[in-house]
């Protein structure tokens, strides 16, 4: 039983990690119908920014809490400006082009950013400082769920709640939903669509940056290539949950994380990905729009 709980919690943590990245994917897709493959790289840039800031601040002997806040803030600003710029440079000019063009542009952006960080920083793995301290009250159950795991779980939950509230109950959220439903009509009723799309990219990138900080602190190392696999997994999770839906992204991530964890625990980690992707195929066969995705009716 304890083994089951251990696997459950490790699966939940994994799911929460995927969710932090998947939220950005799903938001961008929800608004402009683009799979932003560069999102994983935004996450990686967030991790690098917080690494650099945290290292500098710790040299000057700042307290841990200040380091977390400042590094997180720097990562959010930096990643958000990347997200904003990428949208303006790589996606906006292609908004009227076929979907495939924007997709290829996204893949190109992803490769460009990876190599840019490789050249500007290093190809080596860098040790990421442990920013989340080991809480004393977690000590008795530290072998089941660590302090970092707890922080990630809590952050993901809060992030999901805030996003849902923003989208459902605020003016900008309403504008986002309108843009998502019908861009032309939204423009006609006076919504600044360009601004809404920029805001979406900024929110998504900020989430990825926070994810970068937390996940790198959890893993303890960063490298220019960490965004790729994380991005693919988060994208899978977003599709699983129904791409375009915020609760769907979180649910999909948790399902993916739990599947991987139980597959490793009860079958074999050799088949971890086999199970995860078989599940994806099965769900898409029976529910093509994902777990919580909306069925789009084709207009005749």
């Amino acid at each position: 039983m304890e083994y089951f709980i251990e696997l459950l919690l490790s699966g939940l943590t994994r799911g929460a990690i995927y969710a932090l990245i998947a939220l950005g994917y799903t938001m961008v897709y929800g608004i402009i119908g683009l799979i932003n493959f560069a999102h994983g790289e935004i996450y990686m840039i967030g991790a690098f920014t917080s690494f650099i800031v945290a290292t500098i601040l710790s040299i000057y002997g700042f307290p841990l809490l200040a380091i977390i806040v400042l590094a997180g803030l720097a990562a959010v600003i930096w990643s958000a400006s990347y997200g904003y710029t990428i949208e303006k440079i790589a996606y906006k000019p292609l908004r009227k082009a076929p979907r495939l063009s924007a997709l290829i542009s996204a893949i190109g952006m992803s490769i460009f950013l990876q190599n840019y960080v490789l050249l500007a920083q290093t190809s080596e793995f860098l040790p990421f400082p442990q920013l989340i301290p080991d809480f004393p009250f977690m000590e008795p159950i530290a072998h089941i769920v660590g302090s970092t795991d707890l922080v990630i779980l809590v952050t993901t939950t809060i992030a999901m709640l805030i996003l849902t509230v923003v989208i459902k109950y605020t003016k900008i959220g309403k504008a986002m939903r309108a843009t998502s439903q019908d861009r032309t009509m939204a423009m006609l009723v006076g919504i600044n669509v360009d601004r809404i799309i920029s805001v979406t990219f900024i929110i998504g990138s900020s989430m990825a940056a926070i994810g970068g900080l937390l996940i790198a602190s959890h893993i303890g190392q960063i490298n220019f290539s960490i965004g790729f696999l994380a991005g693919i997994k988060a994208f899978t999770a977003a599709v699983l949950g129904g791409i375009g839906s915020v609760p769907g992204a979180v649910l999909g991530s948790v399902v993916l994380g739990l599947t991987e964890s139980f597959a490793t625990g009860y079958v074999s980690s050799d088949y971890e990905d086999v199970f995860a992707f078989s599940l994806l195929v099965l769900i898409l066969i029976f529910k093509p729009s994902g777990l919580l995705g909306k069925v789009e009716s084709q207009k005749v």
Binding site: S10, S269, D270
Partner: peptide, 16 residues
């Protein structure tokens, strides 16, 4: 057992 390289988290295999 084999693990997936570059994965985000190896706590399941460690529990195992």
């Amino acid at each position: 057992e084999g693990i997936t390289p570059n994965a985000i988290d190896y706590s399941a295999i460690v529990q195992k």
